[in-house]
Design a protein around this nucleic acid. Structure first.
Length: 104
DNA sequence: TACTTGACAGCAT
DNA sequence: AATGCTGCCAAGT
């Protein structure tokens, strides 16, 4: 495995793992903290490759609008929302999170 | 080997 | 407010 492969994904996962419960970070923030300043897309790709039983708190990562970036109605979407709600994250009627309050 | 795609985001129009 | 374009970087075709 090359450094660019392992290093990149692990850096991303490490950053995600550091997000405290009850808080959410945007893909852009994760990318920046991982040293990828503008590779928000790469973050989504890395999370997408995580196994279902991973211990990485991937659910604490949402897009810049405070919305879950997964197809509404899909199972992963419901899982993310449920886990966040369980940590005390509040969703508005339209399904958006107030980043001013829950942002990292 | 080259082009397209993707759990995104910021800026321009 | 809604599109569209560009940057990022690995994977798929």
């Amino acid at each position: 495995m090359t450094d660019s492969e392992l290093g990149l994904n692990q850096r991303i996962w490490q950053v995600v793992a550091a997000i405290p419960p009850g808080r959410v970070a945007t893909y852009g923030q994760v990318a920046e903290k991982a040293g990828l300043s503008r590779a928000a897309r790469r973050v989504g790709y890395a999370l997408r490759g995580l196994p279902t039983n991973t211990r990485i708190p991937w659910h604490r990562v949402v897009n810049s609008q405070g919305r879950i970036s997964l197809p509404e109605g899909s199972k992963p979407h419901a899982t993310q929302r449920d886990r966040l709600a369980r940590e005390g994250v509040v969703f508005s009627a339209t399904g958006t999170i107030d980043l001013r309050h829950h942002g990292w």
